[in-house]
C-alpha cells in the first residue's frame, strides 16, 4: 500500500495544478474564440454597429437587450488603431477596450467625458503614435473595443444610430 502514497500525492498535486491551469487559461481561450467569431462575421479593425440584440441574433454570451452595441475586433500587428467615439446626447454610453485575455485596458463613459468625444490610439508598447495622440498601450496585438449605448426603449434606435454611427476604429495611416 505504501507504494501508492507517492503516486496519490502526485495525483493530488496534478489535480490542483490542472484545476488552476484550466481556470487561468479560460479567459484567453474564450476571448480568442470570440475574436475569431467577430472577425469572421464583421471583419476586424472596423467598427460594426449592431442592431438591438434579439434572441435570434446573439454573438456574445449574456448580451443586454437594453443596449445598442458597436464592436471593433482589432489586430495591431500591422499598425496602431485610431478610435473615435461620438457622444450620444442624454444617454449613457461608454467605450471599453479589452485585451486578448479579457482584461480592461481602457474604459470611459459619458460621465467621464462630459459629453465630449473620445479619441484614442491603441498601440503596442513598441509602436509609435503621432505627437499629441492619446496612446493606450495594449499588452499584445489583439483585442476588442466595445461601445455601449443605453436605449430607454428599443424604438429610439434610429435616433441613437444617427450619433453612434459616426464612431469608428481604423488602422492609423503612417
Amino acid at each position: 500500500m505504501s507504494r501508492w502514497i507517492g503516486p496519490v500525492v502526485l495525483a493530488m498535486i496534478a489535480a490542483v495544478a490542472a484545476w488552476y491551469g484550466t481556470l487561468a487559461a479560460a479567459p484567453s481561450v474564450i476571448m480568442d474564440r470570440a475574436w475569431n467569431r467577430l472577425a469572421d462575421q464583421a471583419g476586424y479593425n472596423k467598427m460594426t454597429h449592431t442592431p438591438p440584440v434579439v434572441a435570434e441574433r446573439q454573438t456574445i454570451v449574456r448580451p443586454s437587450p437594453d443596449l445598442a452595441y458597436s464592436i471593433c475586433a482589432f489586430d495591431l500587428t500591422q499598425a496602431p488603431l485610431e478610435v473615435m467615439i461620438a457622444p450620444v446626447p442624454a444617454h449613457y454610453w461608454s467605450l471599453t477596450v479589452f485585451d486578448s485575455v479579457t482584461d480592461v485596458a481602457f474604459v470611459e463613459s459619458d460621465r467621464d467625458t462630459g459629453g465630449k468625444p473620445i479619441r484614442l490610439v491603441l498601440a503596442t508598447a513598441d509602436q509609435a503614435v503621432p505627437k499629441g495622440a492619446r496612446k493606450i498601450v495594449m499588452p499584445d496585438a489583439k483585442g476588442v473595443a466595445l461601445i455601449r449605448v443605453l436605449l430607454n426603449n428599443r424604438a429610439e434606435i434610429g435616433a441613437v444610430d444617427a450619433y453612434r454611427k459616426q464612431s469608428f476604429c481604423r488602422p492609423l495611416k503612417g
Partner: peptide, 24 residues
C-alpha cells in the same frame, strides 16, 4: 475585468459574461 480578480472570477466572467464592464 482586471488582472486582480480571482482566477475563478476571471474564468467565470469569460465563460458566462464575456466583455463585462469593470465595476466602476
Amino acid at each position: 475585468g482586471t488582472a486582480d480578480a480571482s482566477v475563478a472570477t476571471r474564468a467565470t466572467v469569460a465563460l458566462r459574461g464575456l466583455l463585462a464592464l469593470p465595476e466602476r
